[in-house]
Amino acid sequence: MFNQLISIFANGITISSTYAIVAIGLSLVYGVSKTFNYAYGSFATVGAYITWLLFSMFDWMNYPVAIMVMIPFMFLFGIAIEWLIPRPLRKNENWEITTVVATLGLGVLLANLVLFLFGPYTKALPELGGGTVSIGHVQLDWNRIVILILAILIVVGLKLFLKKTYIGMSMRAVAQDIEGARVVGMKINHIFALTFGISTVLAGLCGMLLGTIYFLTPSGGWEIFIKAFVIVALGGAGSIDGALYAAFILGITESFVQFTLGPIWVMPFWFIFLMAVLIFKPRGLLGIR
């Protein structure tokens, strides 16, 4: 029993680390440009299917190469989408609402495009690492350990990028005071596009990592998006550290819910949790604004 609890906990941690990546991406875009991207989950789906395509096209494919191909692809994809949808809408008066509606349309479009291109049957990605390790009586999959390591690298890398590089600093600056950034002469639109691109890469990577655990489905992205949102709501919109803590709180709780009540209770759990957060802590745990 105890060992079972430990392994549920360990699984919760690996899942949480992928949720953290996707939630940080969502939060980053919201923090910088106040844009809420409803197609975000579909971006994760696109990333996962691109990975699957790479593996099915080339026999020699491996994850380092797949990641190297996916990052620039997702980045350019994100920049193109930013240029096509949020940017022209930002001139409108009600751009917050219209962007949400338009990205929701994009999300449905992408999910169905994936359905058309890849068919309705579930697909699986190869594992990142085979076999298991035993720590005491607890067995852990290598795959999940690699996921955790990669997720930590991604989060640490992103935080260093935001903290240390000039462009990362500019992104934080726009998030903190957009008027100030404008006065300083920053190219706000470039920074919006860059942020969107980076968040798209994060979504793609999350889709890839989750794809090594769960099967790929064309509409699987919606669940990822919803979870990312609840994490952001709990962590406080725009706060990266908040998203990180919230991802682990929710991810680990989710794996216990899944184990005790069954996977069908996962979505109601997220809904009830979100309602509870919004009633008791309307601005999230570490809410900024």
Binding site: V108, L109, F116
Partner: peptide, 12 residues
């Protein structure tokens, strides 16, 4: 399957 794709395009 093109129907939802088309509807998505229409919304945007």
């Amino acid at each position: 399957v093109f129907r939802p794709i088309l509807l998505g395009v229409m919304v945007i």
